[in-house]
Amino acid sequence: MINKTINQKAWFMVLPVLALVAFNAIIPLMTVVNYSVQETFGDNLFFWEGIKWFEEVMRSERFHDALGRQLLFTLLILLIEVPLGVGIALTMPRQGIGVTICLVLMALPLLIPWNVVGAMWNIFALPDIGLLGKMLNGVGFDYNFTQNTFWAWATVVAMDVWHWTSLVVLLCYAGLRSIPDAYYQASKIDGASSWQVFRYIQLPKMKRVLTIALLLRLMDSFMIYTEPFVLTGGGPGNSTTFLSIDLVKVALGQFDLGPAAAMSIIYFLVVLLLCWVLYTLMMRNETN
């Protein structure tokens, strides 16, 4: 690890970042905190409600269900995307035209606006006119993601894997490429197996980018809204109504600003806690 020197002047290098982010962060956050403790009837009339909304949200079964679905979804996509992404990054070509082809093609799903991702997967998966739906039904599955909960989940997870695995791949690949050749040469001289090279050289060196990839996928999967909403509309029933979808239903559908704000803050604290635990775990291992 790098031995850092104490230098308070380094604050000046961080100041522009702090200013720009705080400008965008503090006022909106405080406004939402404000909403969360008040009742509004429009016309800018607000009444103090204390923690009533928080109690209401914490007790509501609907919130528990949405949170449960969200946690399951996040766990599933992390378990699929992270190992898959690392595997692909390890097996990608290291030089020549193959690098360009792989990088450009793999980046494409990331670049599609999220409403288009939802819409294209919706049609792609339709049993009568979509390629995926037609293929799955053709090989004998009774595939219908708009009516069957299992297939709805499978389609949403497949869409997320399709959309976001490349993020893990790109980060890990760049991390792998910045390992000095000397490390590989040394391991070759020592006669290390490819598993040993992975375990003792590549994995530790990738740890930082891998931490970033994990955290990003964790928090972004909590934020997922547009794609599943356009794909399944949260259905069938409520089976794919994740936290954000539920939140938007409360905030915009019923226009309950107070409960929606309280829900946002609880939801924010949940993500914060999960990320903090994960981050601390990854970083503690690093110092050992």
């Binding site: 962060a25 809204y225 946002s264």
Partner: peptide, 11 residues
């Protein structure tokens, strides 16, 4: 990093 964690709908 926490600035990436807030759900955007209400914000």
């Amino acid at each position: 990093l926490t600035n990436r964690m807030a759900p955007p709908a209400v914000f």
